[in-house]
Design a protein around this nucleic acid. Structure first.
Length: 163
DNA sequence: CGCGCGATTGTA
DNA sequence: ACAATCGCGCGT
């Protein structure tokens, strides 16, 4: 069962926590989400949506859409938009556990899955290739500050499943 | 229109 | 500790 509008239409920090243990699906590939980070808007200087710019338009749109962008000229990162239309928010998928390996890093996930900018703006509420499926798994997790940012490092918005 | 830098990763 | 590598965002 795909996660629905109501799931994503909440505060980014809540959605980030609850995405742990859910199943990321991309075509024939799927894995359990093990690590996430929340990003928001005007209250979050580390976010792309902190200022009104074209590339983060999806973060300001409806919840449940993919936000894929290139970083450092060589990696794509996968996010899902959160919160109601007009309220910026997204959750970065940073870790996915497959049957035979652990993709521990947002760049590694997109590289292995083959996710690039063509998959930016996908409606993950209805798409049959890229979406996140529900799960009853309620893992314990650890809360830390976000990785790789220089602003708002005091916000504890990174969540990692306990091994 | 040019330039600096980033929600990363693999290698030294 | 650092290079790889390029599109975005902001300043000129």
């Amino acid at each position: 069962m795909k996660l629905d509008y109501e799931f994503y239409n909440r505060h980014s920090v809540i959605v980030a926590k609850e995405l742990l243990g859910k199943k990321l699906v991309f075509g024939d590939l799927e894995g359990v989400i093990t690590e996430t980070e929340a990003y928001r808007g005007m209250d979050d200087p580390a976010s792309h949506a902190y200022k009104l710019t074209p590339r983060s338009i999806i973060m300001r749109g409806d919840p449940g859409y993919s936000y894929v962008y290139m970083i450092y000229g060589m990696y794509y990162l996968l996010n899902v938009s959160t919160e109601e239309y007009g309220m910026p928010g997204a959750v970065l998928i940073r870790g996915v556990k497959l049957e035979d390996r652990h993709l521990d890093g947002p760049g590694k996930i997109c590289k292995y899955f083959g996710i690039d900018k063509r998959y930016n703006g996908v409606n993950m509420l209805i798409d049959n290739k890229l979406y996140i499926a529900d799960s009853n798994f309620k893992p314990n997790f650890t809360t830390t500050s976000r990785i790789g940012i220089t602003k708002a490092t005091d916000k504890l918005w990174r969540f990692v499943i306990n091994l």
